[in-house]
Simulated scan of single mutants.
Amino acid sequence: MPVLIALLAAAAPLFAMATERWGGLNPCLLCLWQRWPYWVAAGLALLAWLLPRRLMLALAGLAVLTSGAFAVVHLGVEAKWWPSPLPGCMAPNAAPNQSVEDMLRSLAPKPAKPCDEPTYLVPGLPLSMAGMNLLYALGLGGFALWAAARRR
């Protein structure tokens, strides 16, 4: 069970990276923040071989649910219910008396996608990648917590 949870946890950020590399999608900062809890969960699930199994699987489930919490924030930003908590998510704005040179200097070295622009992976399906992540995180987090709670 720990190996399965570790593989499923690692699959989410690997899939997201594959959509960048082969699908040409550009992630925003909130997208990137949603990935790291999966890596933590994969590591915790593998630690279940060395440390108390139930505790490590429960912590892995909570780590995955953390990604789900980031996804809820991201969905709210996409729906324009609230602004992004990350300043790097905002599209650059020109100040009233700013020169072109000043605007060019203020741009990030690598263009970032604004967090309030949803990315849809499946044409015709009104579920953004953040929404897909929320569903996946709820499922995998629940599964990991169930695995932690069950008796051998």
Rank of each mutant, 00 (worst) to 15 (best):
A91R: 10
G68Q: 02
G131I: 11
P96N: 06
L134A: 08
L62I: 14
P85R: 00
P111N: 07
P83N: 05
C115H: 04
L121N: 01
G61P: 08
V73L: 09
V72G: 01
M132V: 13
L57P: 00
P118K: 07
S128M: 12
P52G: 13
A79I: 06
M132E: 09
L55G: 04
L75C: 04
V73P: 00
T119D: 08
G124W: 12
P118N: 10
L46N: 01
N93I: 15
G76H: 05
L50M: 10
R53M: 06
G124N: 06
L135G: 13
G68P: 01
L135V: 14
A63H: 03
L62C: 09
P92E: 09
W82S: 00
W82F: 13
S67Q: 03
V64Y: 09
L86M: 02
A58G: 11
L121M: 09
P109G: 00
A94E: 08
C115T: 13
L104I: 09
K110E: 13
C115S: 11
P111R: 12
A71C: 03
R53Y: 07
Y120T: 08
A63C: 06
L86Y: 07
L125P: 01
K113M: 15
P85I: 13
S128G: 06
A63S: 12
D116R: 03
A60V: 09
P114C: 10
Y120N: 01
F70D: 00
M56T: 00
S84P: 02
L51N: 05
L125W: 14
A112W: 13
D116W: 14
V122P: 00
W82E: 02
M56S: 03
A91Y: 13
L57A: 04
G124R: 03
L127Y: 05
A63F: 10
L86S: 02
A130N: 04
T119L: 14
P114K: 08
V73Y: 05
V72Q: 03
P87Y: 11
M56C: 14
P52Y: 15
N93A: 15
V73I: 15
G61W: 13
P111H: 07
C115A: 09
M132G: 15
P109H: 04
N93D: 12
P83Y: 01
V73C: 01
K80E: 12
P85L: 10
G88A: 11
S84G: 04
A71V: 05
V100T: 14
T119C: 01
Y120V: 15
A130E: 05
S67D: 05
N97P: 00
L125D: 01
M103H: 02
L62A: 14
P114N: 06
L134T: 07
A69K: 00
A60K: 04
D102S: 12
A112P: 00
A108G: 04
N133M: 07
L62G: 03
L59D: 05
L127M: 13
S84L: 07
T119N: 00
K80I: 06
V64L: 07
A108R: 12
A71N: 01
L75M: 10
E117V: 15
W81Q: 03
A130D: 05
L55V: 15
P92K: 08
C89F: 06
